[in-house]
Every structure is written in C-alpha cells, then in structure tokens.
C-alpha cells in the first residue's frame, strides 16, 4: 500500500525533477533582476541577502535611457500598427483568393522572414543616407516593416483559414460585399489571433537590436542599443545594465504570458529574433 501522498502525486519523481529544472533554467533570468536592485558596493558581494535599492533605476531615469525607452515604445508600436493595417487584409486575401501565384507569394514571405537582416541593412543603409532617414524613428519603423509585415501575413493566414467559408457565403447571400464581410464577420471571429499577432509583432520589433544598432546613433536609439552604451565605460556598470535589461524585458515577459497559447505558431514564424 502506497502512502496517501504518493497516490495523490503518482508522478512525484518527475514533478520534483521538473521543478528543479525549472529553477535552473529560470536562474539567469531571476539573477539578472536581483542584480538590478543591488547597490554598486553589493554587486561583487556573494551574499544572497542584500539591501535592495532603486539607485540603478534612478540613475537610468536621470540619464538618456528614458528617451531610448520612449523611442523603443514608439517605433515598435508604429511598426506593429502599420504591419497590422496592411498585413491583415493581405493575409485574408491570400487565405481566400483562388488566383494563381498565391503560393509563390507565400514562399516569398517565408524567405523574407528568414533572410539575414544584414542583407536588408546594407542596401537600406545606403538609401537611408540619401533620404536622410538615419537616426530617425521613421527610418526604424520602415526597416521593422521588412520583417513585421511578412510576420503578420504569415501568422494571420491560418487564423483566416480556420474561419468556415460558409459564414462568408451566408453573409454574401445576406447582402455583404467581399470587404464588408471581412470587417463584419471574419475579422471579429479572429479576435484572439489578431491580439496574439499584434503582441508577437510588437515583441519582434521591441527585441530588435541589430537594425537599431546600425541605423541609429542618439536621437532614435532604442533601449537595447542604450544598454550597450553602458558597456563602454571602464568598470562596466553592471547594476545599470541589469536595471535597463530588466526594464526592457518586463513588457515582453508579461505580454508573452498573455499570448502563451499562440507562441508555438508565432515562434515557428520566428518573430523573436536571435
């Protein structure tokens, strides 16, 4: 006869192992957060307990980091909004249309998604020089569209595929035109998909480092680029880097908990770039 607790948790060995593994995997994440609350003097101290301080955050606020943070918010939000406005109808059209070439467009989008960013950066850098888009948020938004537009189309199409065609046929008989049907019937039914797509698209732009590193200097530099700035002083400011890192990752972590269910699909689409 097994003890009562063992019948209640028949998989306790695996569960225990799972917990241990989870702690190990999440350790770097938790560790960098706690580092951000350490005073300068405590950073090299190995004691687990320390007096938490907001000194690092205060320093960030007084420096230029706030501007970079705002830049990040504005450029990621604008890129997401634009990509959604243009990409969602396109995804619907691809899902419903029977014209030839739809599959080729799909493959093109996949390639765009997969292409190394440097391949777009070289030509766009030169073009931006002429258009004076260097170190501007507009320039950033434009270059973010190279991946977010393709991502939105790629992500939304299956959601539209899942809406039964009969609903649109019923609406056609009821008197709706093609795009009115889209707005009144199809779009409301893909609500969760829209939300997940927007969130993942935002995360993709928010997480960008490469484009912002190359195309911005001071005015439009984003939060991830600003963090790198802290590495350039002698005796790196670990506390400030950790605090900035924590600020940058918090929205992303919160958002992804919200759209957890759709991560599988979204990540296959590679919205989160490495």
């Amino acid at each position: 006869m097994k003890p009562a607790w063992e019948t209640r948790f028949p998989n306790w060995r695996g569960d225990l192992f799972t917990l241990a593994l989870l702690v190990i995997v999440l350790f770097p994440f938790v560790w960098i957060i706690q580092l951000s609350f350490r005073a300068k003097a405590d950073i090299f101290d190995s004691a687990i307990l320390f007096a938490p301080t907001l000194e690092n955050y205060r320093a960030l606020w007084q420096g230029n980091f706030a501007l970079s943070f705002v830049n990040s918010i504005i450029s990621a939000t604008s890129a997401t909004a634009l990509a959604m406005i243009v990409g969602v109808p396109a995804a619907f059209a691809l899902s419903r249309a029977s014209f030839r070439g739809a599959h080729r467009i799909g493959l093109w989008i996949l390639v765009t998604r997969m292409a190394p960013p440097v391949a777009f950066t070289i030509p766009l850098f030169i073009v931006f020089r002429y258009l004076e888009l260097h170190d501007t948020r507009t320039g950033l938004v434009i270059i973010y569209l190279t991946f977010s537009l393709a991502f939105v189309i790629w992500m939304m199409k299956p959601f539209f595929d899942a809406v039964p065609r009969e609903l649109e046929e019923a609406a056609a008989i009821d008197g709706c035109g093609t795009w009115k049907t889209f707005l009144t019937i199809t779009l409301p039914l893909t609500g969760p998909g829209l939300a997940a797509t927007a969130v993942l698209c935002f995360i993709g732009a928010w997480n960008d480092f490469f484009f912002a590193l190359i195309l911005t200097r001071t005015h439009a530099s984003t939060a991830p680029v600003a963090i790198v700035g802290f590495m350039q002083y002698v005796g790196w400011e670990w506390g400030r880097m950790a605090a900035a890192g924590t600020l940058v990752m918090m929205p992303v972590v919160l958002f992804s908990i919200v759209v957890r269910k759709y991560l599988v699909h979204g990540l296959a689409a590679g919205s989160i770039k490495g």
Partner: peptide, 14 residues
C-alpha cells in the same frame, strides 16, 4: 448571391 432573392440554410448552419 445577394441579388438573386434567395435564402440559404447551410449544412453547418453558418
């Protein structure tokens, strides 16, 4: 379809 003055009941009701 909308100009034919018909109504339709679909298999899955739609």
């Amino acid at each position: 379809p909308k100009d034919r003055n018909i109504a339709m009941v679909f298999q899955n009701y739609a």
